[in-house]
Each structure stands twice: as structure tokens, then as C-alpha cells.
């Protein structure tokens, strides 16, 4: 079977970390590179974390350092969720390898090396991807698809209307949403629909090794209630996007026209889904609206249990 060439663009980030661990156990993909972006925490942290997580997992994947701030706005971080370093209380040895200096160049080359085949999974602000498309507007039509963790139809989390990854760099998101690449949006409607409860995390692994104890530490650290109507659980937003790429049947959704609001003082960063099809504009985004929670959890566990050896 041909492996699917993949760029994983991320800002680890605790949920990014779980997505990376799952990606490292996904032989369906040819993981060409991990590209980093400022988001959950600053670029020094997200890049170092990506390098450290590769070393913990024992994988040799290029890590390329990307944008240190959004296209036009001041950087905003989510260290109240991810801690100062981006991995909360997890402490890992300093990385022995260096990151490549230029994520944009790495992504661009990956697109050119795998025309019409490259898939991009972007689980942070979309700054790097937007910069690639701005530098060379012929590139979007060579990308097979982009899957993002970001946005939401029913609500935001950083603001009432906006989800963090999009709110941080709405202009970049707009460029990516309007690029013409088939876009799959795994947003808050599904990523907050179910998390791992503390009781499920307790006995998550039956084998203890460097990887399983690291993953377990992160999962325990993630248990958090965002908004009073959500249960305390580990909401692993970014991993769900990866698991959707591996098994689309975990999510239900449909194609909609989605506009990206960048001007509003209160709704900037909102992914405006034309749910009632009032615009008749082309359907540019597959929007995830429903989750098969049991299947999602089973698939996640199956991937992560591959470290039990």
C-alpha cells in the first residue's frame, strides 16, 4: 500500500503531543516533516517540544521551525491551558537534534515533491500554511487536502464566536479557507463533544515504558473543564483530527460554504458556516458536526497501545 505523504503542522501543546504520538504509530502515513508554529505557546517552546516528543517516541522525523507570530496580529498564547512550556508539568530531556530553520520551505518542497498527493494536517494557527500559499499561489492546487483542528459552528472557546487556533491568526485562516484546497474542519462541535474521563485515563496502559508513562502523564495533566456545561475530561482536540484522517467514520459532517470573519470586533476568528445554505456560494469546507465517541476512543486507544511493547 502506498503511504500517504503528510505534513503535520502543529504547536505542541499537550493535545498536539497526543496527536504526534498517534501519528508516529500510523504507518498509513509517510510523515515527511513536523512543522511548528507559535500558538499554544511561543515558537521556541513548540519547536523544542516537537523535537523532544520525537526523541521520546524514538522516531526520526524532520522538525522544521515555523512562524513565531501571526501574519498581522500580536501573538496570543494559551499557557493557561498548556503551561509555560506547552507541556504543562511534563519535563523531558533537552533535545539532541536541531530543528530545520524554515517550515515554509519544507512545506513548499513537500508539496512540489508530492503534487496532488500531499495531505496537510494543521492543528495550530494556520500561519505557516498561509505563508506558503502567499509565497506561491500556484501551490494550493497541488495540495490534495488540508485537515485542520480549528473553528467551530456552534461556538468558540477563546471568545464566544472564535476558536483559539483561528482567533490567534484569523487572516492566515482566511487565506487557507479561501485557497481552494479541499478543507476538512474538525472543530469544537466535535472535539468538545467527548473527552477521556479520569476513570478512563487511570488504567489506560497495562505496560509501563518511557512512551506510555509520558502519554499517561500528559493525559492526566489534560483533564480540564472548559465552560461549566462541559464535563471534566481530557479533550484531545488535535488527536481527533488525526484520527479522522485515519478513519473518517468517527465523524459525521457535510460540505458547507464557510467564510472566515476577520473584521468584526467581537466575532473575528469565527468560522461562519452557511448552515441553512443561504448564500448559494460554493461549498468549500467539510464541517464535522457529529462524533462517534465510542469509535473515536477505541481508535485512539488502539493507536496509543501500540507503544505497549
Amino acid at each position: 500500500m502506498n503511504k500517504r505523504p503528510l505534513i503535520l503542522d502543529c504547536d505542541p501543546g499537550i493535545d498536539d503531543a497526543i496527536a504526534l504520538f498517534a501519528a508516529f504509530q500510523s504507518p498509513e502515513f509517510d510523515l515527511i516533516a513536523i512543522t511548528t508554529v507559535a500558538g499554544n505557546v511561543g515558537i521556541e517552546h513548540t519547536t523544542r517540544n516537537a523535537l523532544q516528543l520525537c526523541e521520546v517516541a524514538g522516531v526520526d522525523v524532520p522538525v522544521a521551525r515555523g512562524a513565531s507570530q501571526p501574519l498581522f496580529r500580536q501573538a496570543v498564547f494559551a499557557d493557561h491551558v498548556h503551561g509555560k512550556t506547552g507541556l504543562r508539568t511534563l519535563v523531558l530531556p533537552a533535545p539532541t537534534k536541531q530543528a530545520l530553520p524554515n517550515a515554509v520551505e519544507v512545506i513548499r518542497q513537500a508539496i512540489l515533491d508530492h503534487p496532488h498527493e500531499l495531505e496537510i494536517l494543521a492543528v495550530g494557527p494556520l500561519t505557516n500554511i498561509a505563508q506558503v500559499f502567499l509565497l506561491d499561489p500556484t501551490l494550493p492546487k497541488l495540495v490534495k487536502s488540508i485537515t485542520i483542528m480549528g473553528g467551530g459552528h456552534q461556538h468558540g472557546n477563546m471568545t464566544p464566536a472564535g476558536e483559539f487556533n483561528i482567533v490567534v491568526d484569523p487572516e492566515a485562516a482566511r487565506i487557507v479557507f479561501e485557497a481552494g484546497v479541499p478543507l476538512h474542519m474538525v472543530g469544537l462541535d466535535v472535539t468538545m463533544a467527548e473527552g477521556l474521563f479520569p476513570s478512563e485515563i487511570d488504567q489506560y496502559f497495562s505496560v509501563s515504558n518511557l512512551q506510555t508513562t509520558t502519554i499517561h502523564h500528559i493525559l492526566k495533566d489534560m483533564v480540564y473543564a472548559e465552560g461549566k456545561q462541559f464535563k471534566e475530561a481530557a479533550y484531545i482536540h488535535d488527536a481527533m483530527a488525526l484520527l479522522y484522517m485515519l478513519d473518517p467514520s468517527i465523524l459525521q459532517g457535510d460540505w458547507y460554504h464557510v467564510d472566515l470573519e476577520t473584521k468584526s470586533s467581537i466575532s473575528y476568528g469565527k468560522t461562519v458556516v452557511d448552515y441553512y445554505h443561504v448564500t448559494k456560494k460554493p461549498k468549500n469546507v467539510w464541517v464535522a458536526l457529529g462524533l462517534d465517541a465510542a469509535k473515536y476512543k477505541a481508535n485512539l486507544k488502539e493507536r496509543l497501545h501500540r507503544y505497549q511493547k
Binding site: 461556538h155 456545561q229 462541559f230
Partner: peptide, 23 residues
């Protein structure tokens, strides 16, 4: 808590409800 969007390009006229209490 509901606010009204008066300056959005795509969200003008939206009733923005703070469902998660972030405001």
C-alpha cells in the same frame, strides 16, 4: 450573555451568545 455584531464582514447582525462563559 448576548452581544450584537455591528462590524463584521460576514457576522454583521449576529447575536453572539457567550455559551462557554468566556466573557
Amino acid at each position: 450573555y448576548v452581544d450584537i455584531d455591528v462590524d463584521g464582514e460576514f457576522t454583521l447582525g449576529a447575536t453572539v451568545a457567550d455559551q462557554l462563559g468566556s466573557m
